[in-house]
């Protein structure tokens, strides 16, 4: 994985402790994307129809590409390179929300999770486009354009499956019950939120969550789905995960850690 560099005459330098605080945000974003990308890739060759298979392959590739971008910005701030970050950290070092580490489940769960994640990413990126840290604002604007396609895709599937048949509705509702509390965990503040908000790096997570709910609730309701009342599952942003992350990383990191060399 190569790293994008900052443009000339542009200062990337952030004073500590803000550097560390911005790094924690990037880490959360990168870890979310790389693991969701991996989960999406598990559908390749297994999706219900060929078009869906192609879509999941493409979405997986996009998410992992976005992860590389966030890891590359982290590298500019002094963290190790993207490959080391993705393949050579253990579960407690990951800062992803638990939503993305859950097994891929059935097609309904995959769609519901992707939908909840895509819209969370949308509101986050739109907020970060106004970030005081220019490299982040520029990258957010770029990624936001690409996400348009994910949003169209997951919204269409939610609307289609929500009330298509009794079975599709039952599966979608069950998926929503399972995914919703973990999706709320996407808005668990990563360490250093106060510093980031004061510096204009990002708005508070609570504000992002409110914007997200305003976007997803009407679509879920239009799909005849009932939104659960549940407490958020927190912990991911502080390295506390479900048992599923171990199995995911064992698979995801196996080749890189095999000692066979890191070049393909």
């Amino acid at each position: 994985m190569a790293s994008p560099s900052p443009k000339p005459n542009e200062t990337v330098a952030l004073p500590d402790p803000l550097r560390e605080a911005v790094g924690q945000l990037l880490l959360a974003m990168a870890d979310d994307e790389v693991l969701l990308g991996h989960r999406d890739s598990e559908w390749v060759g297994h999706a219900p129809i060929l078009e869906a298979d192609i879509a999941m392959a493409s979405i997986a590739q996009d998410e992992i590409g976005h992860a590389v971008l966030w890891y590359s910005l982290l590298q500019e701030l002094g963290w190790p390179d993207p490959d080391r970050m993705a393949y050579f950290r253990d579960p407690p070092e990951f800062r992803n929300a638990t939503l993305v580490e859950l097994p891929k489940g059935d097609w309904a769960f995959t769609i519901v999770r992707q939908f909840l994640f895509d819209f969370a990413e949308k509101v986050r990126l739109e907020a970060l486009m106004a970030s005081a840290w220019t490299p982040l604002a520029e990258a957010a604007a770029k990624v936001r354009r690409e996400e348009t396609y994910h949003l169209m895709h997951s919204r269409a599937w939610v609307l289609r499956l929500g009330d298509a048949t009794e079975e599709s509705h039952r599966r979608m509702q069950a998926a929503l019950e399972q995914a919703w509390p973990h999706a709320l965990g996407l808005f668990e503040p990563a360490p250093g939120e106060i510093l980031r908000v004061e510096a204009g790096i990002q708005p508070p997570e609570a504000e992002l969550r409110a914007r997200w709910e305003a976007e997803v609730r009407p679509i879920l309701e239009a799909a005849s789905l009932r939104i659960p009342e549940a407490e958020p599952v927190y912990g991911g942003r502080h390295g506390r995960h479900t048992e599923h992350l171990d199995a995911l990383l064992a698979d995801f990191q196996m080749v890189a850690r095999s000692g066979l060399g890191e070049t393909w």
Partner: peptide, 29 residues
């Protein structure tokens, strides 16, 4: 349009009803 996603990130899948050929399109971005 048959599929928003295609063989690469930048391409989508289409079908022409006139000449009955599938084709790809470069996505607007």
């Amino acid at each position: 349009m048959e599929n928003l996603f295609g063989p690469t990130s930048c391409r989508a899948l289409f079908y022409c009803n006139t000449c009955q050929q599938p084709f790809e399109a470069f996505k607007p971005l």
